[in-house]
Design a protein around this nucleic acid. Structure first.
Lengths: 220, 220
DNA sequence: TAGATTGTTAATCGATTAACAATC
DNA sequence: TAGATTGTTAATCGATTAACAATC
């Protein structure tokens, strides 16, 4: 009987490095722009010049997911754009709720970029009675007490956390308990859950601080 | 006559790697939290456990800027916090203008985190007559035509760009012409200027896309 | 002093770039 | 076919981790 070690697969066979993953949306954006400008094909070299990266990196990155190009030709823009969209999970509708309907939550709800990429904001939640009942771009603001009911009735994977630091951790725990799988966290705290709960942080204060650092370190 | 090559310095003698720079604000945040909780001293080991990084990395990162610790003792939290603040340029007032006074611009203007770290939003600008004249948290929204006048009267290094993609590039060029040194760009475009103009991007669409990628690639 | 913990050098790991054979 | 450009392997570069002598 032949031993069949290495036959059992660990789920994620070839895991893609975080560095690569972070670059994917930028490729997608450039390809979308090219498509809009009716560019039919592009070589890794030309794309590299536009994006200010190396052609080698582009080819390496793309080949993590398959051979999308053709020798002597380059890449078909529309095909590659669509394939990248599938890789990014943009070929389906990703329902999102926004918890915290203040300025930032409303700004997200109003952002058209999301809709056009398959993200659909289907509800905002807040504790503030002045906000509850409002609609933002057609999306209602619900009482945060309605979360459980709402999440039973709608399939939602992603919750954006646009609420004060003090409430973020507790609400995040509640959301995870209610079945949310991914947190898009705008609060200046680090959230820790089990491995299968995904967290993507947008730390604005940290972003502006790195800019400040660079300004003040510029000339020594 | 001794040759004195290597005496002329290139300005930035030991340039800090981008990876390190990006971690600095997070250290600063943790130290601030520790300080608030009246923790007087902390070892790299304990901090590493709280932050979920290696102690080695913390020591390496900090030692890019000097020896802030003491053998056998660790780091004095208040001292290190203050030193990090200086490194990040938070020990002075950093004036900011926000160009684009929509939801996102208003959200930034309302964000208290910035004030407490030495960032001061001193003006918003927009083309929309409905917004012009409004105040957000005490800060006025000006006609975008007033930019030149305003920037002559105020010392501003940083401009936040919270306006539509279509206008971002042109307005950015105008701001650079008017002497702005750093752009905090929220529009989904890449801005390219000469080396001394700093750009920090916050690409929200790209952020949510990486989350989407991770969701859909989770189980194969 | 003994114990703890830094600062720093050396080793490892991972990511980027270069090179080129394969091939359209 | 000849030229162009990919896919992929190998070389380089940079960042992280480990180790430990220095020292408080």
């Amino acid at each position: 009987m032949p031993d069949n070690k290495a036959v059992v697969k660990t789920g994620n066979e070839k895991s893609i490095s975080p560095a690569v993953i972070k670059r994917l949306p930028r490729y997608y954006r450039y390809l979308g722009d090219l498509l809009k400008n009716d560019v039919v094909r592009i070589s890794s070299k030309e794309l590299s010049q536009r994006m200010n990266v190396t052609a080698s990196q582009i080819r390496q990155d793309l080949n993590n997911f398959g051979g999308f190009g053709q020798q002597g030709y380059g890449y078909n823009v529309e095909y590659l754009y669509n394939e990248m969209g599938k890789i990014l999970g943009l070929d389906r509708t990703n329902n999102i709720i926004i918890v915290g309907a203040g300025n930032l939550g409303q700004a997200l709800a109003n952002n058209q970029d999301f809709d056009s990429n398959g993200f659909k904001i289907i509800g905002l939640f807040d504790v503030n009675p002045r906000l509850i009942g409002m609609t933002v771009r057609g999306v209602e603001v619900y009482d945060i007490d309605m979360l459980e009911t709402f999440l039973k009735e709608h399939e939602v994977m992603i919750a954006a956390l646009t609420l004060p630091k003090s409430k973020a951790v507790k609400v995040a725990e509640q959301l995870v308990d209610l079945g949310i799988k991914a947190l898009w966290n705008f609060a200046p705290v680090d959230l820790h859950f089990s491995e299968d709960i995904l967290v993507e942080n947008v730390h604005l204060a940290e972003s502006i601080m790195t800019l400040s650092y660079r300004i003040h370190s510029q000339n020594q």
